[in-house]
Amino acid sequence: MAADIPIIDAHIHLYPESEVDTLAWCTPDHPLHGQHSLEEYKAASAGSTPKGFIFLETDRKNDLAAGEKDGSGWQHPLEEVAWLKRFATGQPKPGEGHTADDASLCAAYIPWAPLPSGAAAMERYINLVKQEAGESWPKVKGFRYLLQDKPSGTMLTDKFVESLRLLGRKGLVFDLGVDQHNRGRAQLEEVVEMIDRAHDGVPEDQRVTFIINHMCKPDLSIYNVQTSPSFIAWRTAIFTLSKCSRTYMKLSGAFPEMPESLRKRSPEDIFDAIAPWLSVVLAAFGSSRIMFASDWPVCTVDVGDGAWAKWKAVVDRLCWMASLEDDEKRMIWGGTALKAYGIDGEE
């Protein structure tokens, strides 16, 4: 990677110790329990620390029904927005692991949103986020509602599709998190239908942009990709998704989908093992629609403190093996993220 190509890390999670108990998934015995701060992130990426990052919501506890009724079920996601406001405006509390000077590193942040509740509830929620975000509101470029662990059909309800259309009208993106490894091909087929319904009959400039997380979490333990039904289904879905308008893909989230033994190997060995998947993503989306993302600190589980650098080396090797030009590399390392999220005037 050329030293003068700036990095925008398109997918990281941060949370202070004081709010760990609001995370829906973080039990005391979880390996990611405890504070994960920018200070730790900068140490993990030392030597190649990005010029900016995009923060993704951390799945705070919520109650959709209570949110629709009186907003009480949205308390913890809104607390996350309040914390992000402190970060993005350079007003940290002591012990949170960042300083006022770090504010510029937050290129954008993507809060949680209650998309299954429909457009009316989304309107109320977005107004509350705007109020809570205050002067940091311009950094809110979209929303996420994790679908990977939700019941089949969640993303295909009329209310969910209405919410997606609302985001499109407001110029806000939707970060899409699904999981082919654990949920199978059916979830990817639902994604294709969801995007078709969200875009059907909508003018191009009002269509919601989908930013797909973690390559759809494919099963990276497959040995013979030529005959694997799982790989073939994933590949078919990726090429289909790439044909949808306003769709982008994050090169991220690979470590949890690998066998444990592979995670501990060198970046070169990891690249060789997952090259079929990386090649499909590059061929389908091209350098102008894929973006580097670390998924820190999730990437460190069972990998360790060197996970960020290891994943960067894998993506660097992809760029080298594909003989990409510098302008193509600039898109993968940061340009695509700026374009997809509409940062700094990019469309």
Rank of each mutant, 00 (worst) to 15 (best):
D70P: 09
D70Q: 12
G71C: 09
G71S: 10
G73T: 09
G73F: 01
G73M: 05
G73D: 09
W74Q: 10
Q75S: 15
Q75M: 10
Q75R: 14
H76F: 14
H76E: 14
H76A: 15
P77W: 08
P77Y: 10
L78I: 14
E79C: 10
E80I: 05
V81N: 00
V81K: 05
A82L: 12
A82M: 09
W83I: 00
L84D: 01
L84V: 02
L84N: 03
K85A: 06
K85H: 13
R86H: 01
F87N: 02
F87G: 01
F87P: 00
T89V: 13
G90E: 05
Q91A: 13
Q91V: 04
P92W: 05
P92H: 08
K93D: 14
K93E: 15
P94G: 09
P94C: 08
G95Y: 12
G95N: 13
G97I: 14
G97N: 13
G97P: 12
H98S: 14
H98T: 11
T99P: 11
T99Y: 08
T99A: 15
D101F: 01
D102K: 10
D102R: 10
A103H: 07
A103T: 07
A103F: 07
S104M: 08
L105A: 09
L105V: 08
C106W: 03
A108H: 03
A108I: 02
A108R: 02
A108S: 13
I110C: 05
I110H: 04
P111G: 08
W112R: 07
A113T: 10
A113I: 09
P114F: 06
L115M: 15
P116H: 09
S117H: 10
S117D: 12
A119Q: 13
A120P: 00
A121L: 00
A121Q: 08
M122E: 13
R124A: 07
R124G: 04
Y125P: 02
I126N: 04
N127M: 00
N127C: 00
L128C: 10
V129K: 08
V129T: 11
Q131S: 13
E132N: 11
A133F: 09
A133Q: 11
A133S: 14
G134V: 06
G134Q: 04
E135G: 00
E135S: 12
S136Q: 08
P138G: 00
K139V: 01
V140Q: 01
V140L: 05
V140M: 06
G142A: 05
G142V: 01
F143I: 14
F143D: 05
F143P: 04
F143H: 13
R144P: 09
R144C: 09
R144H: 11
R144K: 13
Y145D: 11
Y145P: 06
G153W: 04
T154R: 02
T154A: 04
M155A: 15
M155T: 12
L156S: 13
L156E: 12
T157P: 02
T157L: 05
T157D: 04
D158G: 00
K159L: 12
F160S: 04
V161R: 02
V161L: 03
E162R: 02
E162I: 01
R165T: 02
L166E: 03
L167V: 01
L167Y: 01
G168W: 02
G168L: 04
G168T: 08
R169N: 15
K170D: 12
K170H: 13
G171F: 07
L172P: 02
V173H: 05
V173S: 14
F174N: 15
F174L: 11
